[in-house]
Design a protein around this nucleic acid. Sequence first.
DNA 1: GATGCGTGGGC
DNA 2: TGCCCAAGCAT
Length: 370
Amino acid sequence: MSEPAIASISPTFALQFAFAERLIAWQRRHGRHDLPWQNTRDPYRIWLSEIMLQQTQVATVIPYYAKFLARFPDVAALAAAPIDDVMASWAGLGYYSRARNLHRCAQVVVEQFGGAFPATPDALAQLPGIGRSTAAAIASFAFGARATILDGNVKRVLARVFGVDGFPGEKRVENALWALAESLMPAADASDADLSAYTQGLMDLGATLCVRGKPDCARCPFAEDCVANATGRQRELPAARPKKAVPTRRTWMLVLRDGGSVLLERRPPAGIWGGLWSLPEAADESSLAERARTLGATASLDTLAPLTHTFTHFRLDIEPRVGRLDVAATRASLDARDDDSAWVPLADIEAYGVPAPVRKLLDALQGSLL
DNA sequence: GATGCGTGGGC
DNA sequence: TGCCCAAGCAT
């Protein structure tokens, strides 16, 4: 396969020199200035927002951000909190390794940095959950550093304006975009405010005008220079991820009831829903029945309607079964068993980090009992 | 370098 | 509806 052109530099060469200045001016006038994590240089607040915003849209993050900050107002409070409390506050937001890394990072900042985040991108990128782009964002917004981000917004903007072909998930294309982003940064003598406005402008342009579906090129400050706009290739750039078949998995879940309480189990730290609390599971019907007997359920289980949950990389068919604790089984004997299971009143589910579809299942169950 | 890792929005 | 993907990182 021949090597496609990474970027058509010549038509846009002049733009290289004007890009940052024009973007900063646009950001000041038309960018976003009132998001909950803006108008502060508190590294804790900026860091928290950047972690939550990884692969997650702004509208989804906003309510989680407010609740999380209210519960953990500073890095010391977060570092001192039990991991279960952190997971409970993160539940529903997804990509739960972010929450575990967030907690570990807070502890490192407190124990190794005296509670103060390091100020350089390189030092930040050493911390758990902070990669190259997030490190640059934190350093830019909190410390006015000269380091570029490269998130989905920036990839889309640069791929379109400069006509970068190829799927950005491919290393060769991503490297080209990093190099392009670096080359476009404001000059070394730029002010902190300009550097922050540049970083924010990259994201604002991608999030508000240069959107995936139907970009608003008429309002774009780069419309006259944009390769995609000039050639009508907005829908083709950036190149889409290659399609792959999505496998389906199937699991049986046990809702073991005792009055208004259900039995939850802590999931292992790695893998899907790592570190969350969920229902006892089995790989097939008879295995679940066996588990139910072991846990002290009465003989027969009720069948609920199956539900499907779609992840990025597979589809999960859930077969829920409902059982009751046998009168002969004592809940105390189960409580004493270990630290990784708990009887939880349905009204208290929010105190536990529970996967979204399990939460929905239990909320529906609680509703049917009222 | 490829894969695993959530959930919800937009079309 | 089903498909694509979003302020990516870790292994």
